[in-house]
């Protein structure tokens, strides 16, 4: 063993945790016969001993006080969020009843009108309808129902959509449908507030690869700088290394807000 290779392994000798006598026997043998390496080793050992003897600084009482104040605040804030979610759920239940009662009442009215019509008016002559036409009519009815459902969804107010997102916040194990809805809200909702809430609501599920991929896929489409920064923060906090190429593109894009480019640069440094 020459001096250079022996010195490369001084770290093993100096690290009490890792070294065992057998694995460092050859370094020790070289050290016993080489005055230059002995000097080098002694200087390193002396530096380490001095380093280990440095007094340990103790924090002042303010650190503990501030920590427990912050913890208490967070607990209160979590409790208030839970309470507000309960309130929102109650409001949602009331709203749900309204949605159920209105169609039921409308249906009842329609049935009553039909019965009255059959009792007091003569039946009209019904043209013969073949099987194919019946099937076509059934398909059309289905399409109209789906269209009406989608339209209802799109026409829900921003507040309703926001409530829908916030109601997922305290769900410990929401099903995949809820998470898919959150990702869809992040990608497609026209309101930046709803999208910001969606990204907040997705934090508890950042350990799921599908969630990280969903956020990453939504990032290039996002136009709002605030939401872009929050998406970058999310991906960095989740340590999503797949985001690196997109963040690199963002740092080079002069059309983006300066804060977004800075966030992308910081994110790249952290990833």
């Amino acid at each position: 063993m020459n001096c250079s290779s022996a010195q490369e392994r001084f770290a093993d000798l100096l690290d009490a945790r890792a070294s065992d006598a057998a694995s460092t026997a050859d370094v020790r043998a070289h050290l016993a016969s080489c005055p230059d390496c002995q000097r080098e080793y002694a200087a390193l050992a002396q530096t380490l001993a001095a380093l280990d003897s440095l007094p340990v600084a103790k924090p002042g009482p303010a650190l503990r006080k501030n920590f427990y104040a912050m913890l208490e605040e967070e607990k209160n804030s979590a409790a208030s969020i839970a309470a507000s979610v309960v309130r929102r759920r109650h409001a949602a239940r009331v709203s749900l009843w309204r949605w159920i009662l209105i169609p039921v009442a409308s249906g009842a009215l329609a049935v009553a009108a039909f019965l009255a019509g059959t009792r007091y008016a003569p039946p009209a002559a019904t043209p013969a309808v073949d099987v194919a036409t019946k099937q076509e009519l059934a398909d059309l009815r289905k399409q109209v129902a789906q269209l009406a459902n989608d339209t209802l969804n799109y026409q829900r107010s921003t507040t309703d959509r926001l409530q829908g997102v916030l109601a997922t916040v305290d769900q410990k194990n929401p099903n995949q449908k809820v998470i898919a809805d959150l990702i869809a809200a992040l990608a497609l909702d026209p309101s930046a507030t709803v999208r910001l809430s969606a990204i907040d609501a997705l934090y508890p599920h950042a350990n799921q690869p599908a969630v990280r991929s969903g956020v990453l896929a939504s990032l290039p489409r996002e136009q709002n700088a605030l939401v872009q920064v929050e998406m970058i923060n999310f991906l960095v906090a989740a340590r999503e290394h797949e985001a690196v190429p997109e963040l690199e593109r963002m740092t080079r894009n002069p059309a983006l807000d300066a804060q977004v480019r800075d966030a992308a640069k910081r994110g790249l440094a952290q990833l």
Binding site: A57, P59, G60, A62, L63, N66, F67, M70, L71, E74, Y203, P204, H205, A206, N207, A237, A238, R239
Partner: peptide, 19 residues
């Protein structure tokens, strides 16, 4: 600075606990 940073570290533990 060390006290400020230590405080921030515990704040971030709370904020990013889900990660």
């Amino acid at each position: 600075a060390a006290e400020d940073i230590a405080q921030t570290v515990f704040q971030r533990m709370l904020k990013y606990r889900h990660t």
